[in-house]
């Protein structure tokens, strides 16, 4: 790890200005950044500590919904009474990520900005286009069991590791960003990018953009939700496939549905094709299967992850089934 300057931010504007001036990285919980710095994957010369900024609140918004500060810890967010009551899928997603003693430290903003767990990205002795643009992708012909089946490119097949972001994608959350040009908002589903030919860019943010909060819109009455994660261990492992589902069924007809998938793409994958198939249709096993298959029609599995296609299909179908026919 190279030596670095450490500065404690006094306010949001100052933190952003510091980052714009020095190329500093923002340091919050550190659970991903410090990990990468030890590996030599990230080597910032300046760290701006944002832990003491007043971004750690969770407040109910006037028109309904919730504003979650960027430095709210994952543990606190998962345990927040309003989140547990109104956004149970978010609570579940958070609780299925990492471990209790990591969630104490990890923050909302940091969770969104965590980087891929691709074996080769984390190993500086191997080529990786995300880490070192132009060096090549080692995963495409290497160990790629964990990797993407949707939206990947010939340059990168990594997946985004967050659970929380998948739930937020299904919630149509909005990310509040403060950049050198002032504050702005980014829909969460637009925050992360597909790799294309610039896999080193995980998100649409620039280096000096600071996430300050995430807004969660209210869920309409009668909506049900779930988060389901399939992984190689019963706990404490990244998703092979996960699904966040928000479903509103009335009179046995799908009135509203939002599906996001984790573990399958470079970003939380909103399954809009599946949603399109479902919306307005009567609930039935056949419709659920049709929706899942529509979403996965373009899946391009790699040498080691063909199983993710039937897995994702089954997980989508069973999630729909369980929510649609859940006891009222």
């Amino acid at each position: 790890m190279i030596p670095f300057d450490y500065r404690r931010a006094a306010d949001v504007e100052g933190a952003v200005a510091e980052a714009a001036r020095t190329g500093a990285a923002f340091l919050a919980g550190g659970t991903n950044l410090v990990d990468r710095m030890k590996l030599g994957v990230s080597a910032p010369e300046v760290l701006v500590d944002i832990n003491r900024l007043p971004l750690d609140g969770v407040e109910e918004l006037p028109g309904g919904g919730l504003r979650v500060g960027a430095t709210v810890r994952n543990s606190d967010l998962a345990a927040h009474p309003v989140v547990r009551r109104d956004y149970p899928l978010l609570s579940r997603a958070l609780l299925s990520g990492a471990s209790g003693q990591l969630r104490t430290l990890a923050t909302t903003g940091g969770n969104l900005l965590q980087r891929t767990r691709c074996l080769y990205f984390q190993d500086t002795s191997t080529p990786c286009n995300k880490r070192e643009p132009g060096s090549g992708c080692s995963a495409i012909d290497g160990h790629n069991r964990q990797h993407a089946i949707l939206g990947a490119s010939e340059h990168c097949v990594a997946v985004h590791p967050s659970d929380m972001a998948v739930a937020m994608a299904a919630l149509d959350a909005t990310v509040l960003v403060h950049g050198p040009g002032g504050p702005r908002t980014v829909p969460l589903t637009d925050l992360h990018r597909l790799p294309g030919d610039e896999p080193h860019r995980d998100t649409v943010l620039s280096a000096a953009d600071l996430i300050t909060a995430v807004d969660l819109p209210p869920l309409p009455r009668g909506t049900r939700s779930l988060y389901r994660k399939v992984r190689d261990r019963a706990s404490y492992a990244f998703a092979l496939v996960s699904v966040a589902l928000v479903l509103h069924v009335d009179d046995d007809v799908v009135r509203d549905v939002r599906i996001a998938l984790g573990g399958v793409a470079h970003k939380p994958w909103r399954a809009r094709r599946a949603e399109g198939v479902l919306r307005g249709r009567p609930v039935s096993a056949d419709v659920f299967l049709e929706a899942a298959e529509a979403e996965l029609a373009d899946a391009r599995p790699l040498s080691g992850n063909a199983f993710k296609v039937p897995l994702a299909r089954n997980v989508i179908v069973s999630a729909l089934r369980d929510l649609a026919w859940e006891e009222r």
């Binding site: 450490y6 340091l27 919980g29 550190g30 659970t31 410090v34 990990d35 030890k38 760290l47 500590d49 832990n51 543990s75 990492a98 471990s99 209790g100 003693q101 990591l102 104490t104 430290l105």
Partner: peptide, 25 residues
């Protein structure tokens, strides 16, 4: 690297790993 939990302490009263945090923080 935060993958085993052996460095867990109670930090300001809550369990936390200590290997992924800089002391200056």
């Amino acid at each position: 690297h935060g993958q085993c939990g052996a460095c867990t302490v109670l930090l300001d009263g809550r369990r936390a790993v200590t290997c992924l945090s800089f002391a200056v923080v």
